[in-house]
Nucleic acid binder design. Sequence first.
DNA 1: TCTGGGGTCCTAGGACCC
DNA 2: TCTGGGGTCCTAGGACCC
Length: 415
Amino acid sequence: MKKTIPKRPRVILHMDGDAFFVGVEIAKNPKLLGLPVVTGEERGIVTALSYEAKAMGITRGFPIFKLKKEFPKVLILPGDYKSYEEYSTKMFDIVRRYADEVEEYSIDECFAELTGLDKPLKMSYREIAERIKLEINNELKLSISIGLGPTKCLSKVASKWEKPDGLTVIEIPSIKDFLSKTPIEKIWGIGRRTSEFLKLWKINTAGEFADKSLPWIKGNLSKPYQVIWYELNGVSILKVDPERKTTYSSVQKTRTFYPPTNDSVFLLSQISKHLEEACRKVRHYNLVPKKISFFLKSQEFRYYSFEVVLEAPTNTPEGLIVLARKYFNNIYRKNTFYRATGVSLYELVPEEVKQGDLFGGMITTNKFETIHKQIDSLEKKFGKRVIHLASSHNAKKIKTKGSDSEDLNRDLLFL
DNA sequence: TCTGGGGTCCTAGGACCC
DNA sequence: TCTGGGGTCCTAGGACCC
């Protein structure tokens, strides 16, 4: 089989924070170093855990109440997302000292295009990675792992290879070696369903997957898996995209509650609250949705959703709440019990774009927009959630895990 | 693991048209 | 009318990720 191998292989860096949320907590408070620490108190489940906690057998998703009982020595912290964002930004800025093209993939992961930078920087690729690692360690007191590879997929394999504090380089001649030792389900983009399917064909390792012929892949799997196949064979298809992550194409808010309920007043107030929060977020990014959808999730984990194309896109919740009310009965059944509600705003476009309406007509400025701009700045001053719509108020009465009841007292209602 | 929350991308198939 | 063929657009929902 013929494989096209680029004349000069790419070198892509993947950087991955080690137990990132906990890492930041330790950076903030070095006394925690060496102790079993977890975050996620506010959510009721473990979201991140130190390697010491991992060694005790604790896993992500472990219930906090159980943790307190079974592992009383473990330190449980609430998530401090503001700090995580700050450290994340600083971490990526350090990578940008060396590379121009950096793709922020998630709060604790990024890719960087290093191809050709060895000459101007007068360093080997490995040395570049070492420098980045050292500066993040020294300046931020954070531990990270780095992988270098000729494709994004392979750099992901490399960064996972040795954790924590790892630095692994995969060069083209050693690809086979690495992949034969990598279980197929560990590959980025191959999840439970696909690995189950592949195992029926006796494909258990990434190496066995990469050794399949392209026609076989094309005949049995969809396009994204063909991309993975190329990438694992050292042919770079996925580009490092610095533009990604700088904006959103959709925003959603969902919440699960217990016990499941068929109380339509409660469900609608949840949806109302979600619309408020989603709109707040979208306004913050100066975006406007062209479509929205609501969903109810039943006790049996079935989704019932309804989509609305907005005639006049808006990022204020009032009109959307009216729509939600209007269409609620399309998805709601009296005899069904629901465990979650949610809303999505999508086809988000920059705020200016909606002004230009096709027929040259004036788009009347929604009177609520002015009000919300003022509320947004009020909230900036006094902290979040000072003001709520009356329609969301029922949602606040229900205790969700870890919610603070003093919120109620600060409610300032209108409408 | 009886299953949280917030995202992205792809595809099958229906609706509609000629 | 026991019924062709092909194209485009859209949506619901699957699969995956952190």
